[in-house]
């Protein structure tokens, strides 16, 4: 999510609520006889407010699951998740009297801190990375369709090669005209056996494994400069009319490189959620237990 001017109202409201909470906390901390404590009335108000904000932030996942519900726009929920979730952190700290506590409360504060840190990191990533992906990944596709697109690219490369090795005549390869002279025009091109073997070998050893293996970041063809050199060498093996086949293979490899890059960016962009979401879930569960036990012994 891009944090732009449309967030201004959320930022201002969050800052205002934070300042209000801070003033309330300072008054309570300095005037309360035994200092701040989670069990005091102001402490319970801070704790309750913080927990409600956490519940609201967690409700985003429910909102996503049931996107047809008419309970506000997804972007509004996302902004609320970001800013009110962030506000829950100081509120919970005020509840705890600016300490990390002991036992379960220590675990809760630690989990909350990790949730907030990963959330802020995730927000920063989502702010900067989409633009980076647009710049660096020319042929971006739907992330969850990458495997399918990759298979498609491999088939496409195979079919290009098939067109090249069809032995239609004893004099050489009969290939379609590279340039459209007129409909159904063909050109007879003689490709030496050595060149054919070299081309086939390059395809079988390099291009095909590269296309069939997702995330082949260490492959020669994943490096754009080395790939360019590789295909330039291949072009020297074939006569001019066959070069569009090599161009096609290079284009396929470029697209595959984009897919791999997109995969990597996507993982960076979303990996934090594997920490953020489960810990947030755990936080809500343990937070509820903490509330019940604190009321029991408080």
């Amino acid at each position: 999510m891009h944090i732009d001017r449309s967030h201004r109202a959320w930022v201002l409201w969050t800052a205002a609520l934070f300042m209000l909470a801070l003033c309330g906390y300072l008054l309570y901390a300095f005037r309360f006889q035994n200092g701040p404590s989670g069990g005091s009335v102001p402490g319970l108000i801070f704790g309750g407010a913080g927990y409600i904000l956490m519940l609201y932030a967690a409700f985003l996942s429910v909102r996503k699951k049931f996107s047809r519900w008419r309970i506000g726009r997804a972007t509004t929920w996302m902004r609320g998740h970001l800013w009110l979730g962030l506000l829950s952190y100081p509120l919970i700290f005020f509840h705890a009297g600016l300490s990390f506590g002991h036992g379960l409360t220590f675990a809760l504060m630690l989990i909350l801190s990790v949730v907030i840190v990963t959330g802020v990191a995730g927000a920063a990533l989502q702010h900067y990375m989409p633009r980076m992906i647009t710049e660096r990944v020319g042929r971006e596709t739907i992330y969850y369709q990458i495997d399918r697109v990759q298979q498609d690219l491999a088939h496409e490369a195979d079919s290009l090669l098939v067109s090249l090795f069809r032995k239609d005549t004893q004099y050489g390869l009969l290939v379609p005209a590279a340039e459209k002279t007129h409909a159904n025009a063909t050109t007879l091109v003689v490709l030496s056996e050595y060149s054919g073997d070299q081309l086939r070998k390059a395809y079988e050893d390099n291009i095909k494994p590269y296309l069939s293996h997702r995330g082949a970041y260490r492959h020669t063809l994943h490096d754009a400069r080395r790939a360019k050199s590789f295909f330039a060498d291949l072009r020297t093996l074939v006569p001019e009319p066959v070069r569009p086949v090599i161009d096609g293979l290079e284009s396929i490899c470029d697209e595959k490189r984009d897919l791999d890059r997109q995969s990597r960016f996507h993982r960076i962009l979303h990996f934090w959620l594997l920490v953020h979401v489960p810990l947030a879930f755990l936080l809500l569960v343990l937070g509820g237990i903490h509330a019940v036990m604190a009321l029991r012994y408080g």
Binding site: L164, P176, T186, H270, L274
Partner: peptide, 29 residues
């Protein structure tokens, strides 16, 4: 029919790449 000697990237061909019901199932993530 003679196979193509160069990549043919038409809109129809590109749309055929995708499974339009991909979002219905759960993802690995």
């Amino acid at each position: 029919e003679q196979p193509p000697l160069r990549r043919a990237r038409t809109a129809k061909w590109l749309s055929g790449r995708y499974d339009l019901n991909y979002f219905k199932g759960g993802t690995g993530f």
